[in-house]
Computed example of a mutant assay.
Amino acid sequence: MKRRELLLASVPALAAAALPSWSAAQPAYPGSPVKVLVGFPPGTATDIGVRAVVDQMARRLGQPFIVDNRPGAGSNIAAKAVATAPPDGYTVFAITIANIINAAFPVPNAVDPLKDFKPITLIGNVPNVLVVHPSLKVTTVAELIALAKAKPGSLAFASSGVGTSPHLSGELFARMADVKMVHVPYKGSTPAVTDLLGGQVQLMFSPASTVLPHVRANKLVALAVTSPRRTSSAPELHTLDESGLKGFDTSVWMGLMAPAQTPASVIGTLRTAAHAALDSSELQAIYKAQAIDVLKTSDEELSRFLQSEGARWSKFIQQTGIKPE
Rank of each mutant, 00 (worst) to 15 (best):
K315T: 13
L212F: 11
I101T: 13
A291Y: 15
Q290I: 11
V294G: 10
A234K: 11
A15N: 05
V132A: 14
L220D: 03
P42L: 01
A222N: 06
I145V: 08
D112M: 12
P71V: 00
P185N: 08
I123Y: 03
P127K: 07
R59W: 12
H275Y: 10
D279L: 01
A15I: 04
M257W: 04
F105V: 07
L295P: 06
I77N: 01
Y186L: 04
L172G: 01
A291N: 12
S10K: 14
V138P: 08
T84C: 13
F105S: 07
Y90L: 10
M57G: 04
S233C: 06
P106T: 07
P30G: 12
G31M: 13
V129T: 05
G188I: 00
D195C: 10
A277R: 09
F40K: 01
L196C: 04
A150H: 13
L7W: 12
S298A: 07
S265D: 12
T250K: 01
P191L: 11
V54L: 03
K187C: 14
A224H: 01
G153L: 08
T139H: 15
P30R: 10
I286F: 05
R3A: 14
L61V: 04
R304Q: 13
P324M: 05
D47V: 01
L283G: 03
M1N: 08
S298P: 05
L295Y: 09
Q307W: 08
P263A: 06
S227V: 00
R4G: 07
K180T: 09
F157K: 11
D299Q: 15
N99T: 00
G255A: 05
P228Q: 03
